[in-house]
Design a protein around this nucleic acid. Sequence first.
DNA 1: CGTCCCCTTGAATAAGCTCAATTAATGTGG
DNA 2: CCACATTAATTGAGCTTATTCAAGGGGACG
Lengths: 248, 248
Amino acid sequence: MISDDVRDESTTGLIRKLRVRDSLSSEEAGVLAGMVADVRNFPADALLVPSNVPLDQCVLLVDGMVCRYKDLDTGQRQILELHVPGDFVDLHSFVLKRLEHNIASLTPVRMAIVPHARMKEVTERHPHLARMLWFSTLLDAAINREWILSMGRRSAIARVAHIFCEVRVRLELVGLCADGRYTLPLTQIDLADASGLTPVHVNRMLRKLRDDRLLTFRGGDVIIHDREKLERVAEFKPDYLFLERRPR
Amino acid sequence: MISDDVRDESTTGLIRKLRVRDSLSSEEAGVLAGMVADVRNFPADALLVPSNVPLDQCVLLVDGMVCRYKDLDTGQRQILELHVPGDFVDLHSFVLKRLEHNIASLTPVRMAIVPHARMKEVTERHPHLARMLWFSTLLDAAINREWILSMGRRSAIARVAHIFCEVRVRLELVGLCADGRYTLPLTQIDLADASGLTPVHVNRMLRKLRDDRLLTFRGGDVIIHDREKLERVAEFKPDYLFLERRPR
DNA sequence: CGTCCCCTTGAATAAGCTCAATTAATGTGG
DNA sequence: CCACATTAATTGAGCTTATTCAAGGGGACG
């Protein structure tokens, strides 16, 4: 079994983000940490949660990055969402009992494991905590909706730029981005799968962003040179990330 | 105030759909109906829930159709999801306290109103019911993800076809579609906003679907001539609608 | 050192968009 | 009930954006 320290550490990112949006007592924080049954490491490119398989535990991303994706029969892949440390990546399965998409690691990752049984106990005993967990799944849904807007109505350059804008904000929340610099462990192929473009075209868009001195992306390292202009190109408005506190 | 009959009637669609996915006792069904404070009518093209406004009540679609949408500064619109009777359209606001998108009626609609205060009481007292409501927001999220896949990776013809396939299934669940015929109160412009295409191109895709004897869409009336072929063109797989019962 | 990705770039192609004009359907006021 | 306005549907032509195809270069790793 794992120690209380490991449990606490595994939930700091999640708690930090929940506290941006709502008040979370230290007791509640303790309860959250107490849900963690185990913390496990996985390599990069591992299929962490396969689609359409009965699930009885949730996984929370402690360290590293993961993505959700879906494939078409034609072999085409679409990345649905990127996840950063502190994201309760597979909270959904508690309610859905299976996922209709896959979750895979982009880097070596550390995941906290929370059995559905504990989720049930805790959410039944702590309704406010339950709502905050519910919130975190709805935040994912809001991100999904923004991506629909991207895919449906944004130009190629805006789509690519938008991904960088979103990830910047989300990484800053957990202290993994400062000065517009962060690590995004994606290949241009992954970026194509996330933006609904071809790798070739992503390459050209990245070149344009670089030539226009907005952003450089090389070998997974992102440097945002001109955040304001980048956000304008991306038509990025962070409302959808619900960064403000819930009114009580 | 409204009568118990009106309350019961206003939740039959929702209950019917929840019962496809999970067991719902008649007591729980009664509790759900009891949450409804009011049932109100709205005309077509009404902005039912504006984005970024503090909310203190949820709305459930009883009759008619509504959509969620978002606009870009350029005036481009993207429809994010369509809703059919029995959808708890704005359950999200209970947790989010505001929406980051708009909800508007496509037809004259009847909406049941549930104050957040009642939502809070009921979800705290009935955890299983709370999970089923949570489920219904996660089902919306799964639909959102499928739409990301559509926008990102499906061809124009498949995107248009996919919308018709999805709506068919969802309307059948509430008895509003039989024999592949149903009413979809959208203009071709709306369909363009839902599929991320231009109205002109939607028109051509509809023509192709008609010429190929897969589907006819005229004046809001949908006739699916060849469901199997249509679903193949759409690459439609209904897994993402979670039509099976949750295992206990 | 060779293999395997990934990145990069050019050239040709195709999917979908824009512009424009016509027709059809719907609604309104007289 | 008709004339007129308005919105939606339809179609053609030309154009733009992004894709496909192809080839070469660079770096990591066994």
